[in-house]
C-alpha cells in the first residue's frame, strides 16, 4: 500500500496553469522564507533528504491534499524537528524557545550559505552489490509494492509502475537506497537504473504507441523476467 504523495497517473486533477518565464521565483514572501528555513534546519544534520521527503509523505492525507507546496514543507519540517528532538511540542505550541540547544554549533551562518548550497549532497556510494542488469535487459518491477525493511516505510517505486515490464536504458552506478536511508538504517547502496516502460505497459488508454515513461529504479525494485 502506498501514501498520499504517490499520485502519478491519477485522474481528476484538472488543467495545468502555465506560468510566465519571467515570473517571481517566490510568489509570496513566506515561500522563500519557508524554503530557507527548511534548508537551514536541514544543515543541522539531523536528517537526510530521504527522511525529509518521508516526513512530508507521512502528513495525514487530508492535510497533504489541502496544502500548497510550501505549506507541506512547513508541516513536514515541524514533524522532523519534533521527531529529531530539535524542538519540543511545547515550543511549537508556545512559539517560544524553551532552553538552549546543543546543536547551536551546527548553525549555518550567512558566510557558509554559498558553500553549503554548492557542495550539495551526492547520493552515489560504493557498494558490494553486484550490478545485475545491463542496458537493453528486460526487467519487471516487483509486486507487491512497499518498503521491505520497514512496514509502511518510504519507497520510490510509484504505484503506477508496479508489476510493469520495461527495459534498462541506463546504468547510473550505485546509489543510496531511500528505503533504508529514510529510516536511519544506513545508506544500503544498490545499483540504480533508468528503466523505460512503454506507455501501453502502464496505462489502459495510452496516448500514442511510441510514448514511453522512464523511471529511476533501484535493483531491489526489479526482477528478471523469465
Amino acid at each position: 500500500m502506498s501514501r498520499v504523495h504517490d499520485m502519478g497517473g491519477r485522474f481528476g486533477d484538472g488543467p495545468i496553469v502555465p506560468e510566465a518565464e519571467d515570473g517571481a521565483v517566490f510568489h509570496e514572501d513566506w515561500h522563500g522564507r519557508a524554503l530557507a528555513v527548511t534548508l537551514a534546519a536541514g544543515a543541522l544534520g539531523k536528517w537526510n533528504i530521504d527522511i525529509s521527503r518521508h516526513g512530508r509523505e507521512c502528513l495525514p492525507p487530508v492535510d497533504y491534499a489541502s496544502m500548497s507546496y510550501y505549506e507541506k514543507w512547513m508541516a513536514g519540517l515541524a514533524g522532523l524537528l519534533v521527531d529529531a528532538n530539535v524542538l519540543s511540542r511545547e515550543e511549537l505550541a508556545s512559539g517560544e524557545a524553551i532552553g538552549a540547544s546543543d546543536l547551536a554549533d551546527k548553525r549555518m551562518d550567512v558566510a557558509k550559505v554559498a558553500s553549503v548550497l554548492a557542495a550539495g549532497g551526492p547520493a552515489d556510494r560504493p557498494c558490494d552489490v553486484a550490478v545485475a542488469f545491463g542496458v537493453s535487459d528486460i526487467v519487471r518491477t516487483r509486486r507487491i509494492n512497499g518498503n521491505r525493511l520497514v512496514a509502511g516505510g518510504h519507497t520510490r517505486l510509484p504505484t503506477y509502475a508496479v508489476g510493469a515490464t520495461g527495459r534498462i536504458l541506463r546504468v547510473h552506478g550505485t546509489h543510496v537506497l531511500p528505503d533504508s536511508s529514510a529510516h536511519h538504517l544506513g545508506d544500503g547502496a544498490e545499483p540504480l537504473y533508468a528503466v523505460a516502460f512503454a506507455a501501453s505497459e502502464l496505462w489502459a488508454n495510452p496516448e500514442h504507441p511510441g510514448d514511453e515513461v522512464v523511471l529511476d529504479l533501484w535493483q531491489s525494485y526489479l526482477e528478471r523476467t523469465a
Binding site: V25, F26, W30, G32, R33, A34, L35, A36, V37, L39, A40, A41, L44, Y70, M74, L77, A78, L81, V86, L87, E91, L92, G95, E96, A97, A100, S101, L103, A104, K106, R107, M108, D109, V110, K112, V113, A114, L117
Partner: peptide, 26 residues
C-alpha cells in the same frame, strides 16, 4: 513560517541573515 523561524533563531539554530542569503541566491 514566522513561528518556526522565531523559535529556531531563539535557540541559536538558524541565522536570519543566512535565510536572506539563501533567498537572494535563488
Amino acid at each position: 513560517v514566522k513561528a518556526l523561524e522565531t523559535i529556531l533563531t531563539q535557540k541559536g539554530l538558524i541565522e536570519p541573515a543566512a535565510l536572506d542569503e539563501i533567498i537572494e541566491t535563488y
